[in-house]
Simulated scan of single mutants.
Amino acid sequence: MRGTPDPDGKQSAGREADARTVIPLLMPAPHGPLAGVEIRRPGPSGPHWNGSRAALVSGAGGAKEDFLPLMHRLAEAGHRLFAVDLRGQNETPGLDDPAAYGIDALATDMAVAMTAACARKPVHLVGHGAGAVVAATAVVQAGSRKRFAPSTCRSLTLVAPCWDGPMTAGDAQSADWERLVARQHRGGTMTDERRAVIRQRLARSHPMSLRHLASAAAAPDLVAGLRAEGIRILVVGGAQDPLVPADRTRELARQLGARHSVVPGAGHLPHHDNPDALAAALNGFWAEEGVAEMWQK
Rank of each mutant, 00 (worst) to 15 (best):
A172C: 14
A77C: 11
W177L: 12
V84W: 06
R179C: 11
A100K: 07
R80H: 11
H128V: 09
R186G: 01
S52M: 09
L68N: 07
D176F: 09
V84N: 04
A54V: 10
R73S: 06
A172E: 09
S155A: 06
G102M: 07
T168H: 08
D164E: 14
T152R: 14
G127L: 05
T115R: 08
L74I: 08
D97H: 07
A60H: 01
I103F: 07
L86D: 03
G102Y: 08
A107W: 00
L95F: 11
M71Y: 06
C118A: 08
L106H: 05
H124N: 05
W163L: 02
V181N: 01
A182I: 06
M190P: 11
A135I: 02
H124S: 05
A55K: 06
G188S: 08
R80Y: 05
M71D: 03
R120G: 13
I103C: 11
I103T: 13
T157Y: 07
A142T: 08
V57Y: 02
A132G: 07
G102F: 04
G131W: 02
I103S: 06
G127T: 01
L86C: 07
T157S: 15
V134K: 01
A54G: 12
T137K: 08
M71H: 07
P161T: 04
V134P: 02
H79W: 14
A113K: 00
V140I: 13
V159D: 02
R147Q: 12
V134H: 02
K121C: 11
R87Q: 03
R145D: 07
G187S: 05
A83M: 09
A55I: 15
Q184M: 12
A100D: 12
A117Q: 00
G102P: 07
V133Q: 05
G187E: 06
G59M: 01
V57G: 04
A138K: 01
R80S: 09
A130P: 00
C118K: 00
L158M: 12
H72I: 09
D104T: 14
A172P: 03
Q89P: 03
P166A: 09
T191I: 10
P150K: 03
A119N: 15
R179L: 10
T108N: 13
E76Q: 14
L86K: 03
S52H: 15
G127N: 00
K146Y: 11
M190R: 14
V84M: 10
R87L: 05
R87E: 01
L95R: 10
F148Q: 15
Q141T: 08
L158K: 00
A169C: 14
Q173E: 15
L156E: 06
D85S: 10
A107I: 06
L180T: 07
